[in-house]
Design a protein around this nucleic acid. Structure first.
Lengths: 132, 132
DNA sequence: CCCCTCCTCCTACTCCTGTAGTTGACACGC
DNA sequence: GCGTGTCAACTACAGGAGTAGGAGGAGGGG
């Protein structure tokens, strides 16, 4: 009787690595390590290797044998993960309503300059939609 | 050399339980179980008890011996957790910018009716801020 | 007075994440 | 040919989340 799990999002480190792959497009373990190092994140080579292999098992990245080192390629797109993360957040705290999240941001997290810019975005967005 | 961890948010079930407490205010194990059952979530009594006790150790809930059964009370407010969740999301995917998250919602997730309502909220918010 | 029910407390086990060492293959420079 | 460095593959392990069983106490109903 153990947790079947299923929905579960990625862990922090897994996301670090996925993000490196999203930026790099296609990368070896060293590439990922180098990228993370630039971000100030230091992880052992073998750790990254382990994570990448586990991500492959989960079907989130593909491995291509390229010469000596393997190259890994993300199979899910970043937007999908962003969407998933937003969905989880809204389901958890806003009864699944993205609008309620947006309302929360407007009321709590954004200052008036930011509101101005969001305002402009809304206008632009509406023009886009009208045109269609 | 193990993960010191530290930032990590709550797990899914822990959040289920915290949310039950936020709704109920103060509740026994049975109360929580009943509430979760209404939400269609079925967890064993002792499981909830274990989670609550662990949450107490973490300092997220307080336990009060009330008659026969213990009563648990949330020590963190829901808004704080919502804020934390939003912060984590933005840090992860939007370089820490809440505004970028808002922009994402406007551009991807909200339809024009929702934009209308958000628009109205922005206006209201701005009036509130002007007054100050 | 005994049994049933409800609760607490303790214990245990699995899976997943995060971290990394070890080992062995292989290529390259000298 | 031999060291040296780079990789892949395998192995290991700690800690947290999630799940729950079983022992034992306390109280109410018959």
């Amino acid at each position: 009787m153990t947790a079947p799990r299923g929905d579960r999002s990625l862990g922090d480190r897994e996301l670090d690595i996925m993000q490196a792959l999203w930026r790099l497009g296609r990368a070896t373990v060293s590439d990922v390590q180098g990228h993370l190092r630039e971000q100030g994140v230091e992880i052992a080579y073998t750790t990254i290797q382990t994570m990448l292999n586990r991500l492959e098992v989960k079907g989130l990245v593909a491995r291509e044998t390229a010469g000596k080192a393997h190259a890994y390629r993300p199979l899910v797109k970043e937007p999908a993960e962003v969407g998933g993360a937003i969905r989880r957040l809204t389901e958890r705290f806003f009864e699944g309503s993205v609008e309620a999240l947006a309302a929360h941001l407007v009321e709590r997290d954004l200052d008036s300059e930011q509101l101005d810019r969001i305002q402009a975005l809304i206008d632009a967005q509406r023009r886009r939609e009208d045109r269609r």
